[in-house]
């Protein structure tokens, strides 16, 4: 049986993308899972669809429009949830659906755009360009720097938000900062695995780590390990002629397999 290695340029670029994505997803994912923000992450991921539509329509880079729209949505969700009598997940459900519907309405008007947007819907790590890699490296470095700076405070916030606020360790500003980091990272993750699966790449490795770890010190390292193993194995498997599946879904399936193994091991 033939095994396709890393002697192809596109695979080498894809591997580099996965190696940059893994720490990004792992370190964003840990506070997302600890603070129970998986649904917000999903909403921001889906907003990318509208971001792409707006970008294509007004002729700017869809990555930029995605980041701007995701940031806007995150801020609006936080502001509305504070003032509304509805629970945060209901507010997220309403606002995210509205934004996605807006994006779909825009795309349905322009048939040419719909084909272009399809690329972002499913994503493809095999088609990343050197510019994508540069952006990914810059955003990963920025995100990891910000998260490292506030890591303990986000952990304190997850443990007990009131306690963190009373002791002056963390508060609303930290949630907002995490929202900004989430929006930035999601815009790039979407480029590689698509709108539909971006959340999975953020949440599953971090959830695997949380399942296995009983120490805060270990959780991000285990999440990184899970993201790297899933990313590299999923990429290589998807590139094999006998398997020939899309890379994004294969990576997510490998991540889910690791999560399943972790759950069984924990028992």
């Amino acid at each position: 049986m033939e095994f396709l290695g890393l002697d192809h340029g596109f695979l080498q670029r894809a591997l580099l993308a996965v190696i940059l994505l893994a720490p990004l997803c792992a370190l964003v994912g840990v506070p997302v899972v600890n603070l129970r923000l998986a649904y917000l992450t999903d909403a921001i991921g889906h907003t990318a669809l509208a971001g792409v539509a707006v970008g294509l329509l007004i002729g700017i880079d869809p990555r930029l429009s995605t980041v701007v729209l995701s940031l806007l949505l995150g801020v609006i969700i936080l502001a509305v949830a504070r003032r509304s009598r509805l629970s945060t997940d209901t507010v997220i459900g309403i606002l995210a659906s509205t934004v996605v519907a807006g994006g779909l309405a825009l795309l349905s008007r322009e048939r040419g755009l719909a084909r272009e947007a399809q690329r972002f819907l499913v994503g493809d790590v095999l088609t990343v360009t050197p510019l994508d890699l540069g952006l990914l490296a810059a955003v990963a470095a920025l995100t990891l720097g910000i998260l490292g700076w506030r890591w303990n405070r986000l952990l304190a916030l997850a443990f007990d938000p009131d306690l963190a606020q009373v002791h002056g360790r963390a508060g609303r500003a930290d949630r907002l900062l995490l929202g900004v980091v989430l929006a930035l990272s999601t815009a790039l993750i979407v480029r590689s695995v698509g709108v539909l699966l971006a959340t999975a790449l953020v949440v599953i490795p971090a959830a695997t780590a949380r399942t296995l770890s009983s120490r805060a010190a270990l959780q991000p390292w285990l999440a990184l390990g899970a993201a790297l193993v899933a990313g590299i194995s999923g990429l290589l498997l998807s590139a094999q002629p006998t398997i020939a599946t899309a890379s994004g879904p294969t990576i997510v399936l490998m991540a889910a397999l690791l999560f399943g193994l972790a759950t069984v091991l924990r028992r």
């Binding site: 600890n34 490292g148 700076w149 890591w151 303990n152 405070r153 952990l155 304190a156 997850a158 443990f159 002791h167 360790r169 949380r210 770890s213 009983s214 120490r215 805060a216 010190a217 270990l218 959780q219 991000p220 390292w221």
Partner: peptide, 19 residues
């Protein structure tokens, strides 16, 4: 939350990332 007692006491005052 995966957190030991000594970690809980440390994150309350220190900004050196616990990882």
């Amino acid at each position: 939350l995966p957190l030991t007692a000594e970690e809980a006491l440390t994150i309350a005052v220190s900004d050196r990332p616990v990882f």
